[in-house]
Design a protein around this nucleic acid. Structure first.
Length: 280
DNA sequence: AAGGAGATCAACCGCAGCAGT
DNA sequence: CACTGCTGCGGTTGATCTCCT
C-alpha cells in the first residue's frame, strides 16, 4: 500500500461539486485499497480534496449500497416514527433504513416530512382538509364512510391515538363525530385534527401522558385531562379497545390494520389522505 | 419567453468523541 | 493527563432545478 506520510506542498483543496473524474478516482482507489485514512487516501488517490470531503462523497453518494431514488411509504413512516422517539439523531434513523444516509434522511425530513407535523401552518393545513373533504364528500363518501359515521356518536367521542397521533382525516371529519379527541403518545410530539377541521394541534407532551383535546374550545386549554394510560391503543368512550396497540405502520406490517374500525378505509388510503393534507 | 420565488439536495462547517502518543 | 489527529454527526449553506406568474 502506497502510504504518503506527509506532504510539504500545500496544494489548495478543491471545494464544491464533485466531477465524474473525481468520483471515478475515489471509487477506483477504494475498490483497490479499501478505506484506511481519509486524508491520506485523498492524496494517494490524486484528489485535491480534504479527507472529510472524500468521506462525505463516498458515504453519501458513491458507496455501492446506497439506495437512490424516492422514499417509499414505508420509509416515510419509519422516519416519522423514529423521529418522534429519536429526535434529530439522523444517523440513528438512517441506520434503520438500509441504503439511506443520514444526510438523505435529514434532507428528506426538512423538505418533505417536517411540514406534515407543522403546527403553525394550521390554517393552510385545514384549508387543505376542507378541500379534501369537499372534493370527496359527494363522490368518495363510500359505503365504508357511511358505516363509519353510522357508529354511535358517543362511541367515537374519544380516540386514544397512536404514537404518530395523526388521526384519520376522514374519520375526524365525519359529521357524527363529537368534537374531542384524546391523544396518547409515547413520543414527544403529537398532532391531531379536529373533526370540524378547525384546529390542528401539535404539542409536546410527556412520554407517558395522554391528553384530551377539545376542538370546540379552540386552542385554549389544550390539555384538560392528563392521565396515565397505555400508549398507542384506540379506545371508545366506554374504554373498550377498538384498535390494536402500536403504530399504524406496525399494524400494516403485521396485517392488523383495524379494518373493522375503519370499515374498509385502507391503510394506504389513510396515508394518501395524510399526504394530501400535509402536502407531501 | 423571461424572471422571480420556492423547493431540493449535495456539500461544507463546526463541534464532540475517541484513540493514540 | 494533555495534546493531537481522525472520524462521525447535525446544522447550515448555496447551487441548481422547478414551478408559477
Amino acid at each position: 500500500m502506497m502510504k504518503k506520510t506527509s506532504s510539504s506542498e500545500k496544494t489548495p483543496l478543491k471545494k464544491g461539486a464533485w466531477s465524474p473524474e473525481e468520483d471515478r478516482k475515489l471509487v477506483a482507489y477504494i475498490k483497490r485499497y479499501k478505506i484506511w485514512n481519509w486524508s491520506e487516501m485523498s492524496k494517494a488517490a490524486g484528489l485535491a480534496r480534504s479527507g472529510k470531503s472524500c468521506r462525505l462523497r463516498w458515504v453519501n453518494y458513491l458507496r455501492p449500497d446506497i439506495k437512490h431514488g424516492n422514499f417509499s411509504e414505508q420509509e416515510k413512516e419509519t422516519i416519522i416514527t423514529l423521529h418522534e422517539t429519536l429526535g434529530n439523531r439522523w444517523s440513528a434513523i438512517a441506520a434503520k433504513l438500509p441504503g439511506r444516509t443520514d444526510n438523505e434522511v435529514k434532507n428528506y425530513w426538512h423538505t418533505h416530512l417536517k411540514k406534515r407535523l407543522k403546527v403553525d401552518s394550521a390554517s393552510t393545513v385545514l384549508g387543505e382538509l376542507h378541500k379534501v373533504d369537499d372534493e370527496t364528500s359527494a363522490k368518495n363518501l363510500s359505503e365504508s364512510d357511511h358505516l363509519l359515521s353510522s357508529k354511535p356518536a358517543e362511541s367515537m367521542s374519544i380516540l386514544k391515538g397512536t404514537d404518530n397521533a395523526v388521526v384519520s382525516p376522514r374519520l375526524m371529519s365525519s359529521t357524527d363525530n363529537p368534537s374531542s379527541v384524546l391523544i396518547t403518545s409515547s413520543a414527544p410530539t403529537s398532532c391531531g385534527i379536529g373533526k370540524d377541521g378547525k384546529n390542528v394541534i401539535e404539542s409536546i407532551i410527556d412520554n407517558t401522558s395522554s391528553e384530551t383535546l377539545n376542538f370546540d374550545q379552540e386552542l385554549q386549554s389544550l390539555w384538560t385531562k392528563p392521565d396515565i394510560v397505555g400508549n398507542g391503543d384506540f379506545f371508545d368512550l366506554d374504554n373498550q379497545l377498538i384498535g390494536p396497540s402500536g403504530n399504524p405502520q406496525e399494524w400494516q406490517q403485521d396485517s392488523i390494520w383495524p379494518s373493522d374500525f375503519y370499515k374498509g378505509y385502507d391503510y394506504y388510503d389513510w396515508i394518501d389522505d395524510i399526504d394530501k393534507i400535509f402536502g407531501t
